[in-house]
Simulated scan of single mutants.
Amino acid sequence: MIETNLVRRTAADDIADMLRCWMRGGIMGPGDRLPAERELAVILGVGRITLRAALAELQAEGYLDVRRGARGGNFVTALDRPFRRWLNTMRRDLPGLHDLVDFRIGVERQLATLATRRATSDDLRQLTAAVVEMSEAGDAEGHRRAEHEFHQALAAAAGSDRMAHAAADARGEMFISMRPRSDRKGRERSLRIHVDLLRAIQNGDERAAAD
């Protein structure tokens, strides 16, 4: 007889994982307010009791801060505590971190290659608009939002839902939202990378896009 010690997961655990991925992957960032419970439950396709259990889990872990009053709600924290926990976990599992980095690089290279082959004129306009917004961002939060819009446009240009989901998952697992963008040099470096990728896609240069 085979004995297992599997932990029974709940729907609330799955919803918490999804929201963690959004915050760690940069879809939502520090200071962002989650939609109201009723609206968010509809978006996620779950009951409000399940959603509340997931939100309570994220609050306890330091992802969300609850504010009361007319302008209250669930707000994304600075993510310092979750990031420190993630960093400590990765330091104890360097092979796992290297595997995760390899996976993310592989997926994003393939997305870029597909986008180079398939991007329409509308896709290129969306990518260009995101880069312009990135260049005009005056702070880390504005840069994060523009970068997220770029990657959404890149996924649309690639035309592969499965690949787009894999890339989003990889970004979430990598805690991409905590990349150093608070300093100007970090944002300028990120902007150069995205400008080079945009040019490669515009020129149909698959090799440059995948670099």
Rank of each mutant, 00 (worst) to 15 (best):
G96P: 05
P95W: 11
G69S: 00
Q59V: 09
E3N: 10
R207S: 13
N74T: 08
V101C: 13
I176V: 14
D93Y: 05
D211C: 07
H151W: 09
A158V: 08
R9Y: 15
T113K: 14
H98A: 11
L64W: 05
V107H: 04
A167T: 06
I2Y: 13
R81C: 07
G186T: 06
R144M: 14
R125F: 13
E61Y: 00
F75E: 09
A170L: 00
T10A: 11
L114F: 03
D65I: 06
R192Q: 03
G72C: 00
H151A: 05
E3Q: 13
R181M: 14
E173S: 08
A157E: 07
L87Y: 06
W22H: 12
T113S: 09
A137N: 09
G204S: 09
I27M: 14
D99P: 12
R125P: 03
D102A: 07
A54P: 04
L191I: 05
R71N: 07
R145L: 03
W22K: 15
R33I: 06
G31A: 12
G69K: 09
A41T: 12
M134K: 13
R33F: 13
I15N: 04
L19I: 12
H165A: 14
L79Y: 06
G96F: 09
S160E: 10
R187I: 04
E206V: 07
A209R: 07
R109M: 04
R71T: 10
S177W: 12
M163L: 15
L114T: 02
A153I: 06
G186S: 01
D211N: 10
R179G: 11
G62F: 03
A60F: 03
L64E: 04
E149F: 00
A60V: 01
R81P: 04
K185H: 13
K185G: 11
G172E: 08
D183R: 07
R48I: 13
R48T: 11
I49L: 10
M1D: 15
A12P: 02
R33C: 12
M178R: 14
V107W: 03
N74S: 02
E173Q: 08
A168P: 03
G186H: 02
A170N: 05
E3A: 09
F175I: 02
T77P: 05
H148D: 02
R118H: 12
M28F: 14
A166E: 07
R52E: 03
R171E: 07
L58S: 06
L197F: 05
D65N: 11
L198E: 01
F83W: 09
I105S: 02
A115M: 06
R9Q: 15
D32T: 15
T50M: 01
D93N: 14
Y63E: 04
L58M: 08
R52G: 07
N74V: 00
V7G: 13
L64P: 13
M18K: 15
R144A: 01
G72R: 00
E133L: 12
E188A: 08
E108L: 01
R84I: 12
Q126H: 12
V195W: 04
L124F: 10
G106R: 01
D139V: 02
H148N: 00
G26K: 06
A12I: 08
A112P: 07
R67M: 03
E57R: 08
P30F: 10
I2T: 11
A170V: 01
Q202T: 06
